[in-house]
Every structure is written in structure tokens, then in C-alpha cells.
Design a protein around this nucleic acid. Sequence first.
DNA 1: GGTCGTCAAGGGGTG
DNA 2: CACCCCTTGACGACC
Length: 312
Amino acid sequence: MIIRLGYVAISMALNNTTSSTMKYTNFIKNSNYDKLLEIIKNNLDVLEEVLKYNIKNNIHFYRLTSKLIPLATHKDVDYDYITPFLDKYNFIGNIINENFLRVDIHPDQFAVLNSVNKEVVKNTINILKYHYTILNLLKIKDKIIILHVGGNNFGKEKSITRFINNFNNLPEYLKNCIAIENDDKIFNIIDCLYISKKLNIPIVLDYHHYLCNNDGELIENVIVDVFSTWKNKTPKIHFSSPKSKLKCEFRSHHDYIDVDVFIDFLKKIRFIDTNFDIMIEAKAKDDALFRLVRQLKYKTNYIFIDDSSFIL
DNA sequence: GGTCGTCAAGGGGTG
DNA sequence: CACCCCTTGACGACC
């Protein structure tokens, strides 16, 4: 199987960011729409630079920042972030497609589809639409929006039912790109498999979350079912390492990846015969990815295809 | 020019 | 119920 590694949003090697923003209070002060457009232009320029950097360094898998467009889903800010930049979106989209980059996106903690608060659910749908819009403007063919199941009000069973009901009320185009991820506290991989079966949607396995939250279920016993939720698409896995082994800091992300845990994980699922992507979720971003690769080259006999891909 | 509290937004956990 | 925690990088007020 071929495994490709990716990283999230920011490249440490480039001294810039795709996540420049403007605080709402500051926006209110000046009602400065020009400044917002300027920030978008900058974010898109940097995104182009990051993608070219990824191509140059043979990184095929990348997650967009959710903060590409400042205040995009704020209820009191309404502006056109599409038309002025159509050419730019197109241009970047072509770079992605011509180089077969796999690009996905992951809304942050405020997207809670199963919330008991109607306003929050409404907000969440807006957030999902915004993320879809970004993927669409960048002409991404396999649109994947990764979502957590959400809150736990009134118990797990009821919370899962709320997720399923609210999901079913989404427009078809959103349903077609949502994948769910197991979280580190409540909804484990077994819960995700149950939901996936009901809704026919893919599951992103987060191995760190799995280590934090599982019912003793062995990874080698669920991996086939998890991967089969992707049908003919390339399955995705999230990988990060705990900040420390202490219980209080276990859930926090480390700057880098623990190579031994990484190797151990791959050993467990080695019998799989599917290509897949692993998103490296480490604070040191691409630097963590490259360090991991160096360590793997030293410690294993994996056959490396390029700077971020290997055969197992 | 550097430091540090704050940020639109949700929700879990504790006492 | 009040409070603090997570997480996130970046803003921007302030020195």
C-alpha cells in the first residue's frame, strides 16, 4: 500500500500565513470592507505560494485553513468575497488539479451539527456552506469536509440521533462531502461506524483521539470497516502525538510526531491492502512531517517514493 | 519592536 | 450555576 503524508494550513518553511484575519470589534470600528478584501488577497497569494511549495517538496496532501476568508460566517458581516477574486480562485484551483493535490478542509470547534440550540445548528449549516464554497471555488473535485459528531447533551444515544436527524435535513450537496471524525472525549470510532452505516458517509480515523477515547476496541479490528466507508475514494487518517504522557496533557498536541508510536500503528494495520493518506496534525506542521520522514528512513525499511510518500 | 491579553463563535468537566 | 478548561493562531492595545 502507498501512504501519503500531509500537513495542515501553515508551512513553517515559509514565513507567512493563509490565516490573516480581522477581529470583529476592529471591523465595527471602521466598517472597513476594503481591508477585508486586502486580507483575502494576501491569504490567497500565500495559499498559492504554499501550494507551489508543496508541489516542489512532493507533498500531495494538504488541509486548507478554515480562516481563509475573514469573518466569512459572522452574522453581522455580509460581503462578496467571491466575485472580486474569481480569477484567483480559478488560478489556484488549476494548480491543485493539474498537480493532483488532495486538499480537504476541517471546520473548527464551533461547527456543532447536533447542538440542542437551534441557533447553533443554523450557524453550523452556514459554516458548512462556507467551507463548501471554498472547496467549490478552488474547483476541488473530491470535496471533503471533516466534522466531529458534536455535543453530548441528554446522552450519547440521543446526541447521535440528533446528529443523524440534522444531517438528513442538510441540502444534498453538503451531505455528499461530509466525513465524520472520532473525537477524544465522547464519540469513539464505534459510534462513528454506527453513524456512518446509517448515513452512508466516510469516517476519518484520528489515531490520537482513538488512544484517548476507545472502549478497548482494537484498531486492527475496526480498520477494515473504517476504510470501507470511503468506497472508491482515498481514506484519510489523522495522526498526532500527545504533548506529554501525563494524563493531564495527553490530549494536547505535541510539536512533533512520536515515530515509534507511528511505526507501531502501521504495524497493526499492515495487513490492509488500501492506499491511504495520513494528515500530520503537529504544531511544527511541515517541519514535523519532514522530521518524521527522516526518522522513518532511519528506523524502518519502508520504500520511499518521494519526500512524503512511501510503500508499506 | 516586543509582549501579552483577547478574540464571534461551543461545549465538557468540576465543585 | 459559576468558573475554568480545551484549541488556534493572529490581532492589536499597550508599553
